[in-house]
C-alpha cells in the first residue's frame, strides 16, 4: 500500500470505509467537516453504503442506534457542542450494548466556544457525559497515521464488546495533513450479530431495550455492563512510553499535546534533564497501572493538556500521592508552546 498525503478527518473517513462501515449519519459542524464530506462523496459510489445528513445531532446518533440495531457498522462524527447533543443517544446505545463509532474532533468550549483545537471534552468522553453508569472505549490518536489505524480498531472493539467507541481527536489533528498508509482493514460479520433486530425469522423476537422498571433486574443489567467494563480494562489498555527507561521526570500527555511533549523531552535530554513521556492511547480504559509503575522510578510527573486539568485527575489517582503531580495547560483553543512546557519542566526539575 502506497503512502498518501491526507488530512486527519479524511483519513478517518477512508479508514472507516476500509473497516466495513456502511452507514454514516451526521450533522455539519466544524472542525470535523471534511470527514462527513469525504463520506458524502465516497459512500454513494459503494454498494450497500449509505450516507445521511441528519436534521440534528440528536437524530444522527439515533439513526446510528437504529442502523447498529439492524446489524450494520455505523458511525457518526461531530465536535464538542454536537457531542453534547448526542449524549442522550450515547447513553441508550451503551445501555443497549450496541456497537458504534463516534468521532469527536474537539473544539474550544464551553458553550459555542470556538473552532480551535482543544482537549476540554476529556471528562465528557471518559467519565460519562450522558446519564447512568456506562463507559465508552475512548481512543486518543496523535497523528494522521494513528487516526487511520485506530479507526479500524474502533470498529473491531465496538463489535467485540458490543460497546460504543469514541475516537477523541481535536481540530488540529483533524485538519492537519500528514502521510498515511492504510495498513489495516476489517469487515462486519453480521452473522455473528445474533442479537440484531433484522426480522424474527425462525427464532424468537430480539428486543433491544434499556428499560427495566424492576430495580432487581436493572441492577443485574448494570452488573453485567460492569463485568464487561472490567474485561475491557483487563484487555484493552494502550499506552506509549517514550524515553521512560531512566526518566526522572515523566510528562503525561495524550493526543496532539503528546507531539509537543515529545519534542520537549528530546530538548530536555540535550539539556541534561532526564525527561520521558507517557502517552495514554486509550483514555478509557486508562493505563493506571503503567503510570503507577512509573511512579516507583520517577521523581515527579507533569501532566499537560489543552484544558484546565482533566486527565490530570486520573494521573493523580494512579500515582496515589507517591510522587508530586504538576499540571500545565492552555484553554479556549490556545496551544501550549514547547517553550512553556520546557519552562515548567525546568521549574519542576530545579
Amino acid at each position: 500500500m502506497q503512502k498518501m498525503l491526507m488530512e486527519g478527518n479524511e483519513a478517518v473517513a477512508e479508514s472507516a470505509l476500509r473497516a466495513g462501515c456502511t452507514h454514516y449519519f451526521g450533522y455539519p459542524i466544524t472542525p470535523q467537516t471534511e470527514l462527513s464530506e469525504y463520506l458524502a462523496r465516497e459512500m454513494p459510489k459503494r454498494k450497500d453504503c449509505f450516507f445521511m445528513q441528519a436534521e440534528s445531532e440528536i437524530a444522527a446518533i439515533n439513526m446510528v442506534l437504529g442502523a447498529s440495531s439492524a446489524g450494520a457498522r455505523a458511525m457518526t462524527s461531530s465536535s464538542g457542542p454536537g457531542i453534547s447533543l448526542k449524549q442522550e443517544g450515547i447513553s441508550y446505545i451503551a445501555a443497549c450494548s450496541l456497537p458504534c463509532v463516534i468521532v469527536n474532533m474537539e473544539r474550544g468550549g464551553p458553550g459555542l466556544g470556538n473552532i480551535a483545537p482543544s482537549q476540554a471534552d476529556y471528562f465528557q468522553a471518559v467519565k460519562g457525559g450522558g446519564h447512568g453508569d456506562y463507559r465508552l472505549i475512548v481512543l486518543a490518536p496523535n497523528s494522521v497515521q494513528e487516526l487511520a489505524d485506530l479507526t479500524v480498531d474502533a470498529f473491531d472493539l465496538a463489535d467485540k464488546y458490543r460497546n460504543p467507541v469514541m475516537i477523541l481527536g481535536d481540530g488540529l489533528l483533524g485538519q492537519m495533513m500528514e502521510s498515511v498508509e492504510f495498513k489495516k482493514s476489517s469487515k462486519n460479520d453480521v452473522s455473528k450479530k445474533t442479537w440484531a433486530t433484522r426480522g424474527a425469522k425462525g427464532r424468537k423476537p430480539n428486543i433491544i431495550n434499556s428499560l427495566y422498571l424492576n430495580p432487581v433486574e436493572l441492577e443485574q443489567v448494570n452488573l453485567k455492563l460492569q463485568e464487561k467494563y472490567r474485561e475491557i480494562e483487563k484487555n484493552e489498555k494502550r499506552c506509549e512510553f517514550y524515553e521512560m527507561e531512566d526518566a526522572e521526570y515523566a510528562i503525561v500527555a495524550f493526543g496532539i499535546m503528546s507531539r509537543i511533549a515529545k519534542s520537549v523531552v528530546n530538548e530536555a535530554r540535550q539539556k541534561g534533564i532526564k525527561a520521558g513521556l507517557i502517552r495514554p492511547i486509550t483514555l478509557w480504559p486508562f493505563p493506571s497501572k503503567k503510570i503507577a509503575g512509573a511512579a516507583e522510578k520517577t521523581k515527579a510527573f507533569i501532566v499537560t493538556e489543552l484544558n484546565a486539568g482533566q486527565m490530570v485527575e486520573d494521573v493523580r489517582l494512579a500515582v496515589n500521592g507517591k510522587k508530586p503531580v504538576h499540571f500545565i495547560g492552555r484553554l479556549g483553543g490556545m496551544l501550549l508552546t514547547p517553550q512553556q512546557l520546557m519552562e515548567k519542566l525546568e521549574e519542576v526539575a530545579k
Binding site: A67, Y92, N206
Partner: peptide
C-alpha cells in the same frame, strides 16, 4: 409495546423513534 408485539423490537429514546426507524430501514 416490545413485550406485546411478537416481532423484533427496539425501544427508542423519547421522541426519537423515527430517527431510529430511519437507521433500521436504511440498513434493511
Amino acid at each position: 409495546a416490545y413485550n406485546y408485539f411478537n416481532v423484533d423490537m427496539i425501544e427508542a429514546p423519547h421522541g426519537r423513534a423515527p430517527a431510529v426507524a430511519t437507521g433500521v430501514k436504511r440498513v434493511l
